[in-house]
Write a protein that binds this DNA or RNA. Structure first.
Lengths: 229, 229
DNA sequence: GTCTATATGTGGATAGAC
DNA sequence: GTCTATCCACATATAGAC
């Protein structure tokens, strides 16, 4: 099947170009040229430009989510009472996207990270896997910060996602070639440390602003379900 | 001068459309139509599309920075020893962009916020005002977290910027019309509270990853200068 | 499955009348 | 200063030969 190889070449080329120039910064001609294929082969394999983007994203999205779940389950297995510490839990969530970062995936990852509190991007195509992941993680993070209410918790999650996205973008610009894994590991620990401090901070006293985003409802309903169970 | 009015109309139209569709999502034709002007009037007033974008950004950038400086100076005037608390200092930095947020400026603000640790976007055109602002803020934030070294400090600044950007994007999507100022005020306090917790957290123990970004050098040199003085 | 050729639209920028 | 008309490059998508 030469078709499968062509498909992969197209995905590789698209991924690199998207990483450098953004999803809006590159056209099908350029992608096809980079891959050494004809423009129309893209339409053949992915039906449309949107189909190509979805495929590029999906190729990285599922492995990262799987790795997150794998790490968290491993941490639970190793911990007393099956309850790993907050840093260990956060590490399982934050490490996979940062470790997966290389010059190929740099453009994709910020989008994936954002998707945690913004379903619209990854959306439809991979909604199932995404929901499975957050349903597992949310209650396990939540129980480490009982001092705040659900709405404040959701805001702090937003903040952590912002921190993660920032790291991904920063690393993308930083390293021409992929940053060595020692540096990345150090960054994961810095990030985990800060995220832990943020979630451990006391209740803010002040009024908590309500969110009107759809994602808030989803997160709150997941928290509710797990509280009932 | 009817020219000045046209110029403003074009800026208004461009700002709204950019906010809704992103800088890459809208063309000159659409902007001109929205403004009720001819396409070529854009070229006349701003030379090019890039010139228009720069003008749109600049119109919001300077007032927000001025407001930041004004708030911090007011806080210093009111505080003992001219040294306001960390929350008060952070408030002066975080409040102006969040309060300036309305449906017009929503697309612009994340870019402005990012510019704090990424000069490339706002860049050349407004570099002077930007540098003045951070030169004033950096040492005054820095002295509230002596427990960490400069490099770890820079990373935590990155994190805070990520949190801010996240808020701006979230609020943009949230409110069809501009969120009421009570909600925004509550959000500012949540954000300030979390940022304070983050900067107050102890040293991470682990190795701190070095940054290779140009902005790191700039921040470090500013911190160095203020330490010498 | 993969190519060439092309259809059809839209992007930004410009020339020149008024 | 502002308009109409137009240029030219490039976008995505499709048709049809091989």
């Amino acid at each position: 099947m030469a078709g499968e190889e062509t498909r992969e070449r197209l995905l590789d080329a698209a991924e690199i170009l998207f990483a450098d120039l953004g999803f809006d910064g590159v056209g099908l001609r350029q992608i096809a040229e980079q891959a050494g294929e004809a423009v129309s082969s893209i339409t053949y394999h992915f039906t449309s430009r949107d189909g190509l983007i979805k495929a590029v994203i999906g190729r990285r999205f599922l492995p990262i989510n799987d790795e997150r779940l794998r790490l968290l389950r491993a941490a639970e297995y190793a911990a007393d009472n099956n309850t790993p510490s907050l840093p260990a839990t956060l590490d399982a969530f934050l490490r996979p996207p940062l470790m997966a970062l290389d010059k190929h995936t740099a453009a994709i990852l910020p989008i994936l990270a954002s998707s945690f509190t913004n379903m619209t991007q990854v959306a439809e195509s991979h909604r199932g896997a995404f929901r499975e992941m957050i349903e597992y993680f949310l209650p396990r993070i939540r129980k480490h910060c009982p001092q705040i209410d659900n709405i404040e918790f959701v805001w702090r999650l937003h903040f952590i996602i912002g921190m993660l996205v920032r790291c991904l973008q920063s690393m993308h610009k930083t390293g021409e070639d992929s940053p060595d894994s020692e540096q990345r590991d150090a960054l994961v620990r810095q990030l985990t440390h800060s995220a832990q401090a943020l979630l451990s901070a006391p209740h803010a006293e002040d009024a908590v602003p309500k969110l009107v985003e759809p994602i808030q409802e989803i997160i709150l309903s997941i928290l509710q379900e797990s509280a009932d169970a």
